[in-house]
Design a protein around this nucleic acid. Structure first.
Lengths: 334, 334
DNA sequence: ACTCATAATGAAACCTCTTACATTTTCACT
DNA sequence: AGTGAAAATGTAAGAGGTTTCATTATGAGT
């Protein structure tokens, strides 16, 4: 069943059928109605390949995340898919893991599928090699299709970034903890990403601003795993920290488990703040205070900017920042 | 940059270039080497649309889930994407929600993108209308492309199902609780899906087998939300149940919160079992005993069967069952 | 050197759509 | 009725691959 069959049955040329399919104004109402009826009846759908060959688009966006089973990432994908689908775009998903090689492999696979744009979520930097090396594949991809980063920052032609204001949020959280009398705030992270660095800078700035010396021994790096986070904290000397600011809710849950193990009361003896305000927060006991980095807004902004770029509209800025808020629950006393 | 450019530069015909691209044996080593070099150097990739037009495939599989932000679903998608990517297939993701109309819309969008097969995850039945009505869109889709259900059951030409043995697992869990002296086991679910019904049947069979009357008042239905599950349990009379078997970890966490609210000790006063063995289990406090429905195996089986079907191999059975196990943690005393 | 089977290559058809341009139809106005 | 502009429709040329079939090149066996 192709456009010729429809044309023959309707007694018109294929050009007319094509015009009807694309809602062109230069077809008489009478013809339009007749052709539409036949299209309807025979459940004809145009061949996407032939269409793509002509139009050079398939209305598909590539979405690449490091790990979809992560609560934060899956939320991001959920929003992106929803917004894109609303606008008639399909979503090719890739889960790359954190290695550069895997990311590159996924990106080139997506490019070969002729996506209209590429969205990269988080983790643009794996911590091996220089930033330039690490992000070169992004600029390379951007030479073929517009690239949109979510919570990442890369400068380059055709690269657009949308991020939550992690610097500010981290600063705010740290100040809150200091106001609560905390002086030895552990900074717990699992990433060298742009976001993680922003958080670290906000944290350090707040300490400096409050005349608290920065103690690098309080900045802990661990794989994103609840038990590993717990064990790392357990390996630290008792009382070496009085609160934990984690760059991810999973790590914060690890801190909760640490406190349980040590018999520390939360939040009296140990305050804990997570990040992403994910589903883990209310699953945790006590429920976790966390930074709400407003995924929904970040995603809707990204899609909005993406559509503008595809529309060849001018004036889409390279960078875009979205504010965060703090979701207060029971692991802090603010 | 197209096949003609390569052909011209190499001084061969486009047919030869095409053969080189597809690793055809009927090209001399010398020519192959020369052409490959030029392809490499000019970073030529064949146009997917032209290729699709000829081959009628884009090596893309549609994956439709109701809710990707669900820990279980995102795990399933993670495995599917990994296995499919390994085999050179891309993944078009759709998040449909639970309504039939949305599912149909997503399926037809995917079909219009010319997927090679469609994988539907869970929830084939939304509870409105008869099973036949609810699943008709699946058979319709199956007339255009092979359909693979994960933890769903629909009979039809070109429909292949892979499911975990939820009936058996539910039976086993219920027997364990009974062996622990529980007599009033609440069955908490959020779905009318095939899986949920299998679990219910296993639960009821175990009760009957143990000469415990089935009390419909103990079978509770609630939206998949931790707080709603907690509140529903709080609304029941005290001591009306002594344990909870939930068909999803989120609901089980709701039960944990209920017990906390009521001051019940877990597992002494209240045993709780979840389902899916998701990341919520270790996040919960106490950590949740849960049925491990072996997502990895279900997904690898699905992909394996899918590849066989695409390969036109015979003998792919319509149904395939994978065994479950119980991940014992701290909300039960077995 | 001459066959002849086989390997290597090329020409052209085909896949199904979009669209620029050409042609035909319509119809208001004289 | 005749004219001419505007509207409707059709023709044919791409878009960029794959593949069949025909043709040419190769080289082993005599």
């Amino acid at each position: 069943m192709n456009i010729y069959d429809i044309a023959k049955e309707a007694g018109v040329s294929i050009a007319t059928v094509s015009r009807v399919m694309n809602d062109s104004p230069k077809v008489s109402e009478k013809t339009k109605k007749k052709v539409k009826e036949i299209i309807e009846r025979s459940e004809y759908t145009p061949n996407i390949f032939a269409q793509g060959l002509g139009l050079n688009t398939m209305h598909t966006i590539g979405v690449l995340v490091p790990r979809i089973s992560d609560a934060y990432m899956s939320s991001v994908v959920a929003f992106l898919e929803e917004y894109l689908h609303d606008k008639g775009y399909g979503c090719i998903l890739g889960c790359s893991g954190y290695s550069r090689a895997e990311k590159e492999a996924h990106v080139s696979m997506m490019l070969s599928k002729h996506i209209d744009a590429l969205i990269l979520v988080g983790s643009t930097y794996a911590g091996t090699g220089t930033i330039e090396e690490e992000t070169d594949y992004i600029r390379k991809a951007a030479s073929k299709t517009p690239v949109f980063l979510i919570n990442g920052l890369v400068n380059g032609e055709n690269v657009y970034c949308t991020a939550s204001n992690d610097y500010q949020a981290a600063y705010d959280v740290t100040i809150k903890l200091i106001e609560n009398g905390r002086r030895r705030i552990a900074f717990l992270t699992d990433s060298h990403s742009y976001s993680a660095n922003q958080k670290r800078m906000g944290y350090e700035t707040a300490l400096t601003y409050s005349n608290i010396p920065i103690d690098k021994a309080l900045q802990l790096f661990v794989k994103n795993d609840i038990y590993q986070a717990r064990d790392l904290l357990l390996s630290r000397p008792d009382h070496s920290f009085d609160s934990v600011f984690a760059t991810d809710d999973g790590l914060a849950v690890g801190a909760v488990k640490y406190a349980g193990e040590k018999g520390l009361r939360i939040p009296e003896d140990m305050e804990i703040v997570g990040y992403n305000n994910s589903s883990l927060c209310i699953c945790s006991n006590p429920e976790l205070t966390s930074v709400d980095n407003c995924i929904s807004k970040v995603c809707s902004d990204t899609v909005e900017r993406l559509l503008k770029v595809l529309d060849k509209k001018e004036g889409v800025s390279a960078h875009n920042i979205v504010g965060c808020s703090i979701a207060r629950r029971n692991t802090t006393s603010f």
